[in-house]
């Protein structure tokens, strides 16, 4: 468990203490709450390591999810290697990079195939979308994992754009293309590609300040990037929940009101 305590956690602790709850129970509650929590595990392939200025992005992602929503999240996500059996222990992995990647090994392909077969979701985030080399190579290698599917653009019609926030277009560290891309299998987006550098927008220094400037929108754009990250996490946890018939009429009305 992380030593960092979010504001929401702090508020919850205060509330529990006010209710007479012991500290031991509080610790127990928090630990129990991490069972099944969202865990943005960085996916490592080849000889890659998880370091650099964006290494804080997964923890920030979890922190924002906890503070903004009811969803629990692991505050210290640990990387998972693509050829490790641990890949199958959770349904989500976060694949980011800033340049060309090596071809997947047979073991990595086999592990990823089983990961997707069990319903896993992979978020592919290009840290340098200006060159697009990472996205290009990731698509090439994932095509070897899932040869029967190809990425397609997804816009506001997809549930990921309304799984928590209404989002009109994706933003990250850069403005990027107006749509995400996804490999849809069985009606679910199992691989989501972003050419917006979400990790760059999320990255924070040890002092809590943003590590990478966001262009051209500044902090407003960073907030939009955080919202997209929250929506992706909610999509992973709830799948197409917001497409249910019981929600659809309400959300359609809301969209109609919001539209100019």
């Amino acid at each position: 468990m992380s030593a960092r305590v979010s504001r929401k956690t702090f508020i919850k602790q205060l509330a529990m203490l006010a209710g007479g709850m012991s500290l031991s129970r509080l610790r127990a509650a928090m630990a129990f709450a991490e069972e099944g929590a969202f865990n943005p595990r960085p996916l490592l392939t080849g000889r890659s390591t998880f370091s650099g200025v964006r290494a804080s992005a997964p923890a920030r992602w979890s922190h924002e999810l906890i503070s903004r929503t009811s969803a629990p999240a692991r505050l210290s996500p640990s990387p998972v290697r693509a050829d490790d059996d641990a890949l199958w222990s959770e349904p989500f992995a976060y694949f980011m990079g800033d340049g060309p990647i090596m071809a997947f090994t047979d073991a990595e392909i086999a592990h990823l195939r089983r990961f997707f077969a069990e319903g896993g979701v992979l978020f592919v985030d290009d840290a340098v979308p200006e060159t697009g080399e990472f996205t290009r190579d990731a698509k090439r290698e994932l095509a070897r994992v899932l040869p029967d599917a190809a990425p397609i653009p997804i816009g506001t019609e997809h549930v990921v754009f309304r799984s928590f926030y209404f989002i009109r277009r994706p933003y990250g560290r850069v403005e990027g293309p107006p749509k995400l891309e996804a490999i849809i299998r069985g009606g679910n987006a199992q691989v989501i590609f972003s050419s917006h550098d979400i990790a760059g927008a999320l990255a924070q220094s040890a002092t809590g300040l943003s590590s990478v400037p966001v262009v051209p929108g500044g902090e407003i754009q960073r907030e939009r990037a955080v919202r997209l990250a929250v929506n992706i996490a909610m999509y992973v946890l709830c799948s197409n929940y917001k497409d249910d018939q019981v929600h659809a009429p309400f959300l359609m009305r809301r969209r109609a009101v919001d539209s100019p």
């Binding site: 903004r68 969803a71 309304r162 928590f164 926030y165 209404f166 809301r254």
Partner: peptide, 20 residues
């Protein structure tokens, strides 16, 4: 399905109109 996605203590940093 009904999931509680937001509690009273959550700080969504957005107006109600921005929330789905």
């Amino acid at each position: 399905t009904f999931f509680i996605l937001r509690t009273h203590t959550d700080d969504v940093k957005a107006s109600e109109e921005d929330l789905a």
